[in-house]
Nucleic acid binder design. Structure first.
Lengths: 232, 232
DNA sequence: CCTTTCGTTTGACATATATCAATCAGGGAT
DNA sequence: ATCCCTGATTGATATATGTCAAACGAAAGG
């Protein structure tokens, strides 16, 4: 592993506070790999031998059942995945594949578990990370059960607008059919939902979004930190 | 706190392996309370000052948005709740209320965090518990996004049949309108879904369920451990 | 025992969402 | 530049699910 990669993951909350030698021990056995787009990294149901960290690019987590597949989330630089499966030594509940050319660090699950035993700061960070992920999924369930697809879309747009700096114009971070899957609808329906948001000041051209009447959109979306806040 | 209560929670995975004095420290500041049915224990959005443990009875976790409310889960003896919020010192994402007369232990969040710092076995148990909860919610999302309400009901019935011993006859653990909310549908729709399962050998009388053709039902439900397995 | 209440069920209807097929548009590759 | 491929859109239609109102039934209280 390059120094720059080590520095990068060292700065992540999960690894930031741990002892130097614990970090060394983790990094020693790590693999760094670059993958082209659309490569499967993990298959749902397989055992989880490595904790994965996205260094660069984007990775999609999906789940399937009975011919169907849905996108659970899309991960970017700094995100870790299948921590829960590694901790419990249980099969992956989701598949993972690269969307773009991506660089991923893989830490052997054994090492993670061993260092976890030794280093209390790391243990605490793992707890915080898992609690964070848990709360993220809870919010996802709340959105699915309490909101219509139009409302989910409206809140998604507001969330990303804020995340990307708050400008009236911004670019969608994923292609539309994946966005549809994330929001739990079909691509056709997303198309129609986008049109339905036009009266609320939403103009979408390709992946570009402009929100001209944020107050009107918020009145429809009714965002709340208890569902839409990414941190906390 | 009575000895019997202490013994009970000591036997839970979360507290089983911790040091005796850590456990003492936790129990020292604990409150044990009995509540009548339909009492609010927590309100969504409030800060989380106590880790809660259900000793007896049933507690419902709900979430609301814009006039609507949905049941996220129903907890029974031995279940802990809002661990994630306590760990992150963040607002509750769900409300909690008793369904039956219930006994609940409340451990001050401060104590939990402090003992967590000192006792590595406890820290590990917290990690395992959080990972377990996380995986439970992920399965919930998969069910919501990949299955119809009929399929969710069919799998719910099979899951509880197995959990209650595998007999052809068993009793639903919650009233129907709550079951509807858990499954993400309306009570009216649940009624119709139950009727729709009759050709698959499902006879429901009040809260009593009989599954006469389990193979037929399984063919419809297509259960998979990656969604329907409660443990792991 | 009756009454009241609340949860359930049923039917009619409205809405939301998915499906299918066809067309359209943009980005690479040749 | 042209072609081809893939994703996006549109329209027509089907299905799933929610809503409203009414009727029903079981359990609790007087």
């Amino acid at each position: 592993m390059r120094d720059s990669d080590a520095t990068m993951i060292r700065s992540l909350p999960l690894f930031h506070d741990m002892a130097d030698d614990s970090f060394e021990e983790l990094v020693r056995g790590a693999y760094v790999q670059s993958f082209p787009p659309m490569v499967d990294l993990l298959i749902e149901g397989d055992s989880s031998d490595f904790l994965h960290i996205v260094i660069d690019g984007t990775v999609e987590l999906t789940a399937g059942w009975n011919e169907g597949e849905t996108t659970m989330t899309v991960l970017r630089e700094g995100a870790t995945f299948i921590l829960a499966a590694v901790v419990r030594d249980a099969p992956n509940l989701m598949s993972a594949r690269t969307l773009e050319k991506s660089k991923v660090i893989m830490l052997p699950a054994e090492d993670v578990r061993r260092v976890f035993e030794q280093d209390h700061a790391f243990a605490r960070a793992v707890v915080r990370e898992l609690a964070f992920c848990y709360r993220g999924v809870i919010k996802c369930v709340k959105g699915l059960k309490l909101r219509t697809s139009l409302e989910r879309l409206a809140n998604y747009l507001l969330k990303w607008q804020k995340k990307l700096g708050g400008d009236a114009c911004f670019t969608l971070p994923v292609e539309k059919r994946r966005l549809a899957s994330i929001l739990g609808m079909t691509p056709e329906n997303l198309s129609r939902a986008i049109k339905a948001l036009r009266p609320y000041g939403v103009v979408v051209t390709g992946l570009n979004v402009e929100i001209t009447k944020p107050d009107d959109l918020k009145q429809l979306a009714k965002p709340t930190p208890l569902i839409d806040d990414t941190r906390s």
